[in-house]
Write a protein that binds this DNA or RNA. Sequence first.
DNA 1: AAGCCGGGGAT
DNA 2: ATCCCAGGCTT
Length: 356
Amino acid sequence: MKKEKYASIRKGLLQWFQLHQRKLPWRRNHLPYEIWISEIMLQQTQVKTVLPYYERWMARFPDIASVAEATEEELLKYWEGMGYYSRVRNIHKTAHIVMTDHGGEFPREHGAVLKLPGIGPYTAGAVMSLAFNEDFPLVDGNVERVFARLFDIDSPVKEKENQKLIWKTAKELIPSGMARDFNQALMELGALICLPRTPLCGDCPVSGSCESRRAGIVDQRPVAGKRKSLQPIQVAIGLLLRDGKIFIQKRPPHGLMPHLWEFPGGKIQENETPEAALVREFREELDLDICGLNKIALIRHNYTSFKVTLHAYFCTLVSPHQEPVLRTAVDGRWVTPDQLQDYAFPAANRKLIRML
DNA sequence: AAGCCGGGGAT
DNA sequence: ATCCCAGGCTT
C-alpha cells in the first residue's frame, strides 16, 4: 500500500520534473562550488532575487580559491542587499577551510560537509544530492509544505516530531541513484505547483496521492506556527558634513548587519525629539557635538520583527577640528558622496543614498 | 524550543 | 498588510 503510493509519487514527480523544470544557472553543471554558493544564496531568498547576484558572483569568483583570496569587504559588497550577512562571512570561512583542510576540493563526505560554517542539514543534503548525486534527503520550506499536504500533517510542521517524520519520509522516497533529480523535483513542485496560497492542484502530478486534497482541506495545510507582530521603531540618523565629505562608520562583527557601513545615529527614546536623539547618539557613539541639524527625509523600512522610520538629517560639527572617537563602530571614514557606492550599506541606508 | 538574522516578491 | 522564501546559529 505505502510502497505503491511511494512508487506513484516518485514516478509522477520525476516525469513532471523532466517536462517542467526551470532552466536555472546552477543546474547547468553539477560543480559542488556552484551548488554550494547557490544554496547559501537561496537560504530564505527567492530564486528571482538570487539570479542577478549569482551571475555577478560567478563572474567575479569563478572558484573556491578566488573566494579564499578575496577580502571580506569585497565579498560583502557583492552580497549587499541580499540580507542575512553572516552567510557571506561563513562562505569566506568555509573557503579557507576547504583550501587548508581539503586541498582546495569541496569535501564529498556528508559529515565533513555538515561541519562547514553556514552549512546545516538542508544545505548538506543539497550538496550531497545535487552535486554528487548521492542518496541524501533534503527538507526546505517547499518540502515541508508539499509533505504537509501530501500526508495531511495536522500540526505545525516545525514541531520536532513532524520534522523527524518529514526527514524520514524524504529519505525513504528517494529513488536509489536519482536523488539529484528527485530532490529538485520535490522543491520545484513546491515552487511552481504546490504554492503557499493558491496551489494549482489541477496541474499537480501527484494530486492523486494527496491526502489533504482527498479530504478537501488543502487550504488548511500546512498548519502555521505562532507568529509575532512587528514593533514600530523610530530612528534618527545623521549625515555629518565636513569639507564636502560625509562621515560613515562600520558596524561591529556580531549582531545586526555585521560589518556593514552606516550613517551614525540610533533609536529615538520615548518623549525624545528626533533632533535630541541624534545629538545624544553622536555623543554616545562618537563623542562628537553636532549642530546645524537640517531634516532631509523620512525613510520607512520593514525588518522581520520590527519596522523602522528613519529620521535623516544633515548636520555639522560644533568644533570643526574635533575628531570622532569610535565607541561602538569598528572603523570610521570621511568619504565623498561618490565614494558611498563603494561601501556596503543596509537597505534602509541605501534608500537614503539613492534619494540624494 | 525559541529568538535572531534582512530583504524583497506575491497576494 | 501579511505571508513567505532551496535555513543556520545562538541561547
